[in-house]
């Protein structure tokens, strides 16, 4: 158990360092001279070469990339992500003010999709080949296939314009949370429901369930203790991966619903060529992604003792 934990943590740490490096390189990967971008932001549009060169030396853009990275990492470790080029506010502060909205959206999407997907997958497997199963599978297929941005507009047309029961956009209160969470979570709902159904149907054939029945274990216990824990193993993996996708999905959904989260901050940053913001947002999203994966790995080990005790691989 200990070695498994340690190995996962180490992998996460290596990924983290990699992420900082790639995030740092973002400035150099976008077209244009970073010194010019900063100068334009500071001195207005018609900047001369003098100003650009001044900024280049002041900000250290003239130094070698490893040196720059080293310095940038130094700032990062003291939690300094730089300042926005537009409004001069510290990036960390901006992110901190936006992060709760995004987390709220992501977790309510997760909650909605699990609340729908788990019972749906379970029922579909138990009532295989009935109308209920067909309906659940159709719903799941639609969920996987419909893109979130399109669903967003359908939801807006239906709930806001036709029924007039939910606000078109905005942030605050349960009412504003419903549509973005649905739009963001539906793809995951479909995927998880389908996977749980398939996984449970496979576990259902296993000898250990027959053996448990032969020993007189009741059907309820067979399902919830003997079958479900096995069936959840692949499902947990996918939920973890999908959670990461949820975070990136927020970029589009937040902009549709005017949700003041990280995604909106990131997109604004991109449009304004405000690269400290972009770097900061990408870094935070990537860190969240890695943390989620570590959490999933731990949960996975709890579910499957074969992983917990394995020493190799």
């Amino acid at each position: 158990m200990g070695s498994y934990l340690l190995r996962r943590m180490l992998i996460a740490l290596v990924s983290l360092v990699g992420v900082t490096f790639i995030t740092f390189l973002l400035i150099f990967l976008v077209p244009g001279d970073p010194a010019e971008m900063v100068a334009e932001a500071r001195f207005g549009h018609a900047v001369g070469d003098r100003e650009v060169e001044l900024v280049r030396v002041m900000e250290g853009f003239d130094q070698a990339i490893p040196t720059q990275y080293w310095r940038w990492m130094g700032h990062l470790l003291s939690l300094d992500l730089g300042h926005s080029l537009i409004n001069r506010k510290p990036v960390l502060e901006l992110i901190r003010s936006r992060l709760p909205a995004t987390l709220l959206l992501a977790f309510s999407s997760l909650l909605i999709s699990l609340v729908i997907a788990l019972p749906a997958g379970l029922l579909a497997a138990l009532r295989k080949d009935t109308w209920l199963d067909t309906f659940a599978r159709l719903f799941a297929l639609l969920g996987v296939s419909i893109p979130g941005f399109w669903l967003s507009y359908l939801l807006i047309i239906f709930f806001s314009l036709q029924l007039k029961i939910l606000p078109v956009s905005g942030y605050g209160g349960l009412k504003t949370l419903v549509m973005p969470s649905l739009a963001l979570g539906l793809g995951m709902t479909g995927l998880v429901a389908r996977l749980l159904r398939a996984s449970l149907l496979e576990v259902w054939q296993q000898d250990y369930l027959r053996a448990a029945r032969a020993n007189g274990i009741g059907e309820r216990k067979i399902l919830f203790k003997y079958a479900l824990k096995n069936a959840m193993i692949p499902v947990v993996t996918v939920i973890g991966l999908q959670l990461g996708m949820l975070l990136s999905g927020t970029v589009i959904i937040e902009n549709i619903f005017g949700w003041p989260g990280l995604g909106m901050l990131l997109l604004d940053g991109i449009f304004n060529r405000d690269f400290p913001i972009v770097q900061g947002c990408v870094l935070v999203i990537a860190v969240c992604f890695i943390l989620i994966n570590v959490a999933v790995d731990l949960f996975y080990a709890w579910l499957d003792p074969r992983i917990r005790w394995s020493t190799g691989g």
């Binding site: 020993n215 007189g216 003997y226 824990k229």
Partner: peptide
């Protein structure tokens, strides 16, 4: 009555002690 199953390797639940 009880059935001692034939597939030794898959007749115990892998995720329960």
């Amino acid at each position: 009555m009880v059935l001692i199953p034939q597939n030794v390797y898959n007749s115990l639940n892998p995720v329960l002690s």
